[in-house]
Each structure stands twice: as structure tokens, then as C-alpha cells.
Amino acid sequence: MTQSLAVDVHGLTKNFASTRALDGLDLRVATGSVAGFLGPNGSGKSTTIRILLGLLRADGGTATMLGGDPWRDAVDLHRRVAYVAGDVTLWPNLTGGQAIDILGALRGDVDRGRIDRFLQLFDLDPTKKARSYSKGNRQKVGLVAAFASRAELLILDEPTNGLDPLMEGVFTDCVSEAKAEGRSVLLSSHIFAEVEKLCDTVTIIRDGRTVESGTLTELRHLQRSTMTVTIDGDSAVLSAVPGVQELTADGQRVSFSVDEGALPDVMRALAPLGPRGLISTPPSLEELFLRHYGLHAEAAEAATRP
């Protein structure tokens, strides 16, 4: 590995009484990159993040964050990390502005200029008591505190939970800006568009185990593309090509899915049929992801294994 890593987790395990929350999880975040962290509900994302924050102690495996041990060096590491939970709980009788200052002071930097800028970007009134904030506004308090800090690593656990689309846009800009500043970001999310737009790499986990990780391009590589094309002649020829599946024909218009490796054969078979209006769609993140979310994921996995 030539690149330095902001987060390096290997074979992490964690049990809660009888529940096995993490079962050999791997996760890497390269320094200066934005890493997406996806998985179904209860798959262990928050647990992993809490271990990275030294709030929970791992049972096994190794975890390194910014070169330190998340549990042992927690206090020192936290000066360099900013964290936003999916459900920001504040002190009900303090204002949002006070909470932001206090959180900043606890990390060791309060930059009024930056705070004011992000307050404005997120359109947040800092003089309201936290108890009267809406869900999204509470979330904004956490986000402003995190982005206004100068932390090297931002750990965001479903941070846009409850934000309106406009604010989600602001959030996306802020993450891009953080990346431009050279900061690293670990972003756990259920929103594909967000991850697709922002993330350099993606890690998909399921039942506490990493099932897929890499750059989006790499992941797409492993997946079948969908092709739609209009042809003259009989589409049955195509079904004979190894690697073509889910073939459907609607008059002259056929669509099918195809393995990356079978493309040359498919092209050869198509050429004599006078193909027009060929559309090839790479798998969306959603499709990649649903493969691991769905009930049939296990079966699908088994099927793709040699």
C-alpha cells in the first residue's frame, strides 16, 4: 500500500451479549479521500464507527485511525476527528449556537468565522433552544460543528438524516470542500445519489462483514451491464451467446444483461443483425447495493462464486 490511510480496519469483531454485530469487518479510508460506507439496517455501520471513536471496544481484529489506536489514544485522536451522528442529541435547554461552541471547545478549536459561515450556508438560527429545533435543524447543529472544525478526518454516520433536499445539496458542497481542503471523510449513508456523487471508494457491508469494497468503477466492473438495442432478425441468436442473460424482446427491441467478459462475443453476434440505437447501462450503485440488501443476496452470492 503506497497511499497512507486515515482509517484502516481489519478483521474487526464485536459482540453484544448474544448478537454478533461485527464479524471480521474490513474498512479502509485513504487520506484525503471520501469513503462511502453502506449496508442494510443493523449491519454494523454505527458499531464500526463507535469503535473508531473509542466509544466501544472491539473484541477482535485491528483498527487504526490517523495512525493511532482508537481506544488507547482516543483523547488525542479526537482532536483531529469530527463526528456527526445520525441522530444528534443536544442539551434541550441550551441554544444551538451554545452547543456548537461547546462541541468546538471540547475538541479544542472554535473558529467563529467558520462557524458563522456554515451557519449561514445551512440556514440555521443559533439562538433557538435545542428543544425547539426540528429533527433536521438538530442535525444541522452537528454538521456545522463538524465542518467548522479543522479536523483532518470527518466521520459522518447518516449525517443527512432528516435534511431537506436543498440542505442535502449544501451538505454535498461542504463535503467536496472538505475534500478539497485535503481532509478525509468516512460517510455512512443510505442515500445512493449522495454516495455516488461524493465518494471515491465504497465499502458495502452485510451482517458485520465486508462484502464488497473498492472504487465505484472497480465495483461496476464486477457487475453485469444492461444493454438495449434494436435489431433486424431473430433475437434467438443472442440467447445462444454465453454470458447473456435475462433476454427479453419487444418486437425488434431486445434487452439483456451481459458480463463484461462476454462483450466481444456479443458484439460479434450482434453485427450481422443490423443493430441500431444501442444503449449500454453500467449497474447503478443502487443495483450493486440491492444485490447485497435483498433477500436473495445470499443466493446471488452463491451463484457468482466459482
Binding site: T95, Q98, K129, S132
Partner: peptide, 8 residues
């Protein structure tokens, strides 16, 4: 419930 200070 009144408004509060902007800063801590």
C-alpha cells in the same frame, strides 16, 4: 420558551 444566546 425564550430565545437564548448565540454563543456559549
Amino acid at each position: 420558551d425564550r430565545r437564548g444566546p448565540r454563543h456559549a
